[in-house]
Design a protein around this nucleic acid. Sequence first.
DNA 1: GCGATCAGGT
DNA 2: CACACCTGATCGC
Length: 591
Amino acid sequence: MSSFAGRMKEYPNMSLDRFDRENLHARAYFLSHCHKDHMKGLKGPQLKRKLKFSLTVKLYCSFVTKELLLSNPKYAFWKDHIVALELESPTLITLIDEASGEREELVVTLLPAGHCPGSVMFLVEGAQGTVLYTGDFRLAKGDASRIELLHSGSRVKDIKSVYLDSTFYDPRFYKIPSRETCLHAIRGLVQDWVSRSVYHTVWLNCKAAYGYEYLFTNLGDEFHTQIHVKSLDMFKKMPEILSHVTTDRATQIHACRHPKDEEFVPASRLPCGSSASDGTPLSIISIKPSTMWFGERTQRTKVIVRTGASSYRACFSFHSSYSEVRHLPAYLSVCLGLLKSMCRDVSSSAVIYRPLGTLKRTRPEQHTHDVDCADWLFEGADLAPVRKRVMMQEATPTTLPNRPDEPLPLTHIPLITGDYMDCTESNDDDEEERDLEEEERGGERDEGSVSNSGTPPRWEEFFTTEILTESQTSQPHSCSQTPELFVDDSAKLPSPSIPLSAGRGLSQAESMLIQSEDRCQGDALTNLDAGGEESGSHTHQSEPTESQVSSDFDIPSTPDSHTPGPDDLSDLYRRLAAGEEVITRTGSQSL
DNA sequence: GCGATCAGGT
DNA sequence: CACACCTGATCGC
């Protein structure tokens, strides 16, 4: 669940990704992507009633999101109230108060978010300044610099606030292998399996959500097959996706799901119950795309880890990693700082970077419903990661379950100390739990895979407004969403790193607000090389697989990590809280 | 019978 | 516990 309450303090008349409570009074709605946790209240009867009597209230989203949304009949009542916007086309939107007639003009621009089909960020420009709401995103370092509308001329726009997806804003996710790296590894594993015989079948155990289509299209192309899925309805106007999926069970790659029989799946049966026509039993492996599972590892792991006789975990994320999350506001503020100090207003010369003030942190062991979210958003708290699962009642500060303005007692920070057995599924259907990893072959390393491209992810390319005919859809054809669209070019931005790896100094949070006055500049934390070496071991066995793919990426890979002692941490926090320089970088500085 | 919420699952 | 859901039970209308 997104912890974002739906409104930005600069523009409280618009609601984004939340449609309940206060948001029922919004003058315009914005949906960044079609995941349920960003659609709370969207099918509620109250909103439905509101729409009936309103001529002006609209829902703005991308064309793909509109399509996905309307493919679910429960949202059909939105049909005449959705305004789909093109990506990267600034659009003037007038918010009208239907009671008073009061008007407010905004220019809203959708920017690609790389999270799932149709996902966008909203750049809002208006009387209260320019703000960026990211929704959920996965952008690699450097992607932001390629988004033209974040810039004005050669400079980054003066962005007042960034509302940031910080799902993996946690050092455990310091670095997540790029999409290409993950895809490459998965492709290798699939290759190794399906090439054995036509009875060798792969089940991609994907969470029921949009976001894996990239995997389907690429695997489909690679293996000249279509992926079996439960339904095609939502993709009927998206030929690039549609051509790669099928409801015909006779294929070697499945991503189908069936409620209820999760646990019977791997070795014996697919969720769809498919079996070979001649009665030969299928040999099935399951591959479970995961991110958090890898984040929990305390030792380096491969991109793919074998967790059982026929089951694997594959690293796959549609959220940015810690360093990627940090990069976005850092990129914006670095340029902002330069702009202010170098290009403007020479008289006031010095750019003052306000100290962070006190870090708002929360105790890891508290998870009960917090209530401060809406509150701090509107009360101008400083840079403050918010916790997840925050409920949206307005709450008085005194009800805060934790006093975020005090440094955490160090004893409450769980240090990752690193010596437990890796690669066991705690409650899974897997039999043997050993960590056999995969591979080697190809040896493309994440950091090494710098590449070309000047293009940010464009899920929109999947989309067409025409509905394809049966014959058109049955032909797999090449997909324009090639891996190079998702380049990890972290290598292009050399920068120092600091060992902030142990523990979780800053609480994990899903959304947080960063305001320009509060931001320190500098991209202090970018990854060092993860230092993956070629994994040497590959005994070839015949059992399920000791397959050889290339994926020598190790996770987690917080560079130079050592477990800081309480003194180190306490000193670090003190300095962070005081806004002191912790690391210096090319003239500017940073947290 | 519906929605909202919670508990439990992957 | 996150992720992004899904199912099922319970409660209130």
